[in-house]
Each structure stands twice: as structure tokens, then as C-alpha cells.
Amino acid sequence: MADLATATRNAALTTRGGFAEVVLTPAPAASRLSLRAGADALPGLSAALGVTLPTRPKTSALSGKRHALWLGPDEWLLIDEGEGDLMAAAASSGTLHSSVDVSHRNVAVIVSGPGAEVAINSGCPQDLSLPIFPVGACSRTILGKVEIVLSRIAEDTFRVECWRSFSPYVFGMLSEGAADAGH
């Protein structure tokens, strides 16, 4: 058994894309947690996870390499771009909650550049102007025919999360949006 090689990861998306106005970059693998909990569990969970779980709609919190995205009144998506063990951290909180590892379920594309907003708006019906969707804003929404989780990580940079099998479609839609964003 010891001579067995550990299985290697195959990412769903590997190549970059985009244009001068908008660059599309597959995000590196990350740990992700679908976290569900009631209000009373939030202080304990926030302490255990090291990031304050936001309670306002369409907002997120960032602590180091750990993002906490508000998705619903009892639902957060945690993304850790480092080595942290989110499942263990949540379990250590001693609170009543549900944590489910979705690290491999989601794939992310980083959309950056001055045309990022327009590129995403080619298929996303939300108002992405800065006053309405500021840096740190996040939302589950629609891109074309599929569901995404959109978050704005800088004025001209968004993170688009989707389920793994939808990622080629999402990348394709964003590519077409990016192609038009420069015009």
C-alpha cells in the first residue's frame, strides 16, 4: 500500500483568457466551506474561523487569506486560499451549525481589468456599478444560464465562483463578455 502514488488533482480550468480590457484567470485551488448557522452561533463560529461572519446582505469579510461571503441569512461561503483547515476550525467552535466541505464543488475565475464590470454584465442582471456593488460586495446570482457567486475583490477585479461542471460555460460566457467589453 505504501508504494501507491497519491492521486493527483486535475483542475477543471487551467488556461487564462481575456483581452487587454479584461483578463480571465482561473483561481488556484482553495478550501471552501458551505457554512449554515443561526444567529446565536455566529460569535463562536467567527472566533473559531478567525473571520467575522458578516450579517448584512451582499457583504463579505476578509481576514488574511480567508474570505467569508454572506449568501443568505443563515448561509456563508468560506474560501481559504491558504493551507487552513476550515472544517476543523468550524468543528472546534462548539456551536450548532452545518459545515460541508465544497472545496472541489466550486471553481473560480478571477475577472480583472477596466472592462471587468461590463464583461460580467454581458450575462449577469445585477447592477455592478461601484456605488451599488462596492469592493467587498458579494452575491449569488445568474450568469447566462447558470448560477454563480460573484464577489468584488477590487474596483476592477471580481471573483466568479461556479460549480465545477459549469466552469467551461462560465469561462466561455465571460470570454465573450470580455471580447465586447473593450468596445
Binding site: 446582505p57 451582499k58 443568505g72 441569512p73 442582471p125 445585477q126 452575491s139 449569488r140 446570482t141 445568474i142
Partner: peptide, 18 residues
């Protein structure tokens, strides 16, 4: 396409999300 105010998101959103 309808515009619907979600009482949880506290915002009007496109019918596409509903």
C-alpha cells in the same frame, strides 16, 4: 422581466434570480 424586492437581501433583483 419582473423586478422583485427580496425581503432577506433587502434589495430589488431581476426575476431571473427567482
Amino acid at each position: 422581466m419582473l423586478l422583485i424586492y427580496c425581503p432577506y437581501c433587502e434589495e430589488e433583483r431581476s426575476e431571473l434570480e427567482f
